[in-house]
Simulated assay, not measured.
Amino acid sequence: MAAMASVVNILGVIFLSHAVYSAYEHSLLPSASIAPTSSAILPRSLDPNINLPIDITLETLFSAFLLCVGVVLSSPGLKPIQWNVWAGGLERSKEAREVKEVGVGGGNPYAGLEERAGFLDIRGKRKEFSDWIKQDAGSEKS
């Protein structure tokens, strides 16, 4: 896949270079210096001074498309979007669990956030509440 992406990128660069050179050569022709009719859509400052032939325009668009495809094909694999999948993968890998520096632990990178002082433990509070409700319901039946 990487070899194919490199070939597509090289072809895109070759086609783009040829299109740029062709556009430059076309701009030097005496017939290209004749100003085209002004467009009613574009303002005068954005109107082009040179009419490029359709083959140069198509070659430029084709080379840009090839380069986009080549970049997409050569990009690395996507990472999982779900944080629990990513953190679980880190916890399971041996490299992530090893301590490489003093004070820098391995495993889940969010474990420090969950164990910090003053952090509200929602699951613990929910369990306390359900125990309190069960205890209160048990005392009313008696």
Rank of each mutant, 00 (worst) to 15 (best):
A5C: 04
V8H: 00
V8Y: 01
I10T: 12
L11R: 10
L11W: 08
I14E: 00
L16N: 08
L16Q: 07
S17Q: 10
H18V: 12
A23P: 03
Y24P: 00
H26A: 14
S31H: 08
P36C: 06
S38P: 08
I41T: 09
D47Y: 01
P48D: 01
I50Q: 05
I50M: 04
N51R: 13
L52R: 01
L52W: 01
P53S: 02
I56W: 05
T57G: 10
L58N: 05
L61S: 07
S63H: 03
F65K: 10
L66R: 00
L67F: 10
C68T: 08
G70M: 01
G70K: 01
V71P: 01
V72D: 02
S75A: 15
S75Q: 11
L78T: 10
L78R: 15
L78P: 00
K79S: 07
P80D: 15
P80A: 15
Q82M: 11
Q82F: 11
W83D: 05
W83Q: 09
V85N: 12
W86P: 00
G88Q: 09
E98H: 07
V99R: 02
K100L: 13
V102A: 14
G103P: 04
V104R: 13
G105K: 07
G107H: 09
N108Y: 06
N108M: 09
Y110H: 13
Y110L: 13
A111I: 12
A111T: 07
E114H: 10
E114F: 10
A117H: 10
L120P: 00
D121Q: 05
R123L: 10
D136P: 08
A137M: 08
G138N: 13
G138L: 08
E140Q: 03
E140S: 03
E140H: 04
S142Q: 14
